[in-house]
């Protein structure tokens, strides 16, 4: 089973200095994820789920232990190698969407493709396809301030998915959405997971999200409390 893992985490510990003392955000975590999983890190605030997501996303590094993503050891990557990993293989969805406010929907979704230096024709095809997935083809020229929260999050999903990454990391993606929008977003992501075999990893404590997850990893005080596979 381990040979097919796209993420392998061994004895991961993350400690943040807090003034004169230290705060242990993750304590000896060992985990593995397979291609195509729809999994979530679940726990209250301060349980370490966002920290774990950030380390998996190569935005942060472990204090101890090893984290291998698609064969790359996160602790040993240079800034450029880490940026390349994020650029080519990973997609991010954030709680507050993090869209570029002065850019149009089209330009927001185009950004990851610009970084990959794809030509304009291919970019256009991929952007329209991604907007089709999230049902926003009629909003290409709108700017984020003109969109609702649900629409903004759908743009963020399109931006994360447009380059067809191996894995999407979603940090509290429904925290700012109402129930209807949350279900819409989650159904979209589930559909993309099934159709494109993209791995989705959530950090959440929202029951609506938890209900959709096929694997639920509960974290308490930086440690794995439960790791449950759910048969929907």
């Amino acid at each position: 089973m381990e040979n097919h893992s796209i993420i392998q985490i061994q004895n991961l510990t993350k400690i943040f200095p807090m003034g004169k003392s230290d705060f242990t955000a993750l304590n000896n975590v060992t985990l593995a994820f397979q291609q195509g999983e729809f999994a979530g890190l679940i726990g209250p605030s301060g349980s370490g789920k966002t920290t774990l997501l950030n380390i998996i996303g190569s935005l942060d590094t472990p204090t101890k232990g090893t984290v291998e993503i698609l064969g790359h050891s996160i602790g040993n990557l240079s800034a450029k190698q880490a940026a390349n990993l994020r650029k080519e293989k990973l997609g991010f969805i954030f709680q507050s969407y993090n869209l570029l406010a002065v850019h149009t929907v089209y330009e927001n979704v185009e950004f990851p493709l610009l970084l990959l230096k794809l030509n304009a024709t291919l970019r256009k095809k991929m952007i329209l396809e991604a907007l089709e997935w999230v049902g926003l083809t009629d909003k290409v020229d709108s700017k984020p301030p003109q969109l609702s929260g649900g629409e903004c999050q759908r743009v963020a999903i399109a931006r994360a998915m447009v380059k067809k990454p191996v894995m999407v990391l979603a940090d509290e993606p429904t925290a700012n959405l109402d129930a209807a929008n949350s279900h819409h977003i989650l159904q979209t992501m589930l559909k993309l997971n099934q159709e494109l075999k993209t791995t989705f990893l959530f950090a959440t404590h929202d029951e609506k999200v938890i209900n959709y997850l096929k694997r639920r990893i509960y974290l308490i005080d930086g440690k794995i409390d439960k790791d449950i596979l759910v048969d929907h």
Partner: peptide, 14 residues
């Protein structure tokens, strides 16, 4: 947030 987003999407800090 925008700076963080650029980095998350694949930019280096430089």
């Amino acid at each position: 947030k925008e700076i963080g987003t650029y980095i998350a999407l694949g930019y280096t800090r430089t």
